[in-house]
């Protein structure tokens, strides 16, 4: 199954569950407060996912390492390499 199909399956499952409870075609007669919570549920889900995404990206962005030391070390090694290669007769 492709990732797209997996997503569609998951969404269809959630959607059906939500429609069954919220639109009540079976006549379950859930109490009104329950249905009031159920109605905007997809919107809640979307907002929650959006918040989660932004928080995750924000957190990872703030913990993204700046490798200053690695860059400095590389510059030193470049000098070393140039000197050594010139000694061995390389013409840059």
């Amino acid at each position: 199954m492709t990732k797209l199909a997996q997503w569609l399956c998951g969404l269809a499952l959630l959607g059906t569950a939500w429609a069954t409870l919220a639109l009540d075609p079976l006549g379950l007669h859930l109490p009104l407060p329950c249905r009031q919570v159920l109605w905007p549920f997809p919107v809640y889900l979307l907002v929650a996912f959006g918040c989660y995404s932004l928080a995750t990206i924000g957190y990872r962005l703030s913990t993204f390492n700046d490798c200053e030391a690695a860059a400095k070390e590389l510059q030193e090694q470049i000098r070393e390499a140039r000197a050594d290669l010139s000694r061995r007769g390389l013409k840059f």
Binding site: R60, D66, C67
Partner: peptide
């Protein structure tokens, strides 16, 4: 993107794009 890994020489915009693209890819 893990442990001591990281980048040098990227500005904020580049980091945002990279992190964002990585997140979307991981989710999908």
């Amino acid at each position: 993107y893990k442990g001591n890994g990281g980048v040098y020489g990227w500005d904020l915009k580049r980091k945002i794009i990279s992190r964002g693209a990585n997140f979307v890819t991981q989710v999908l």
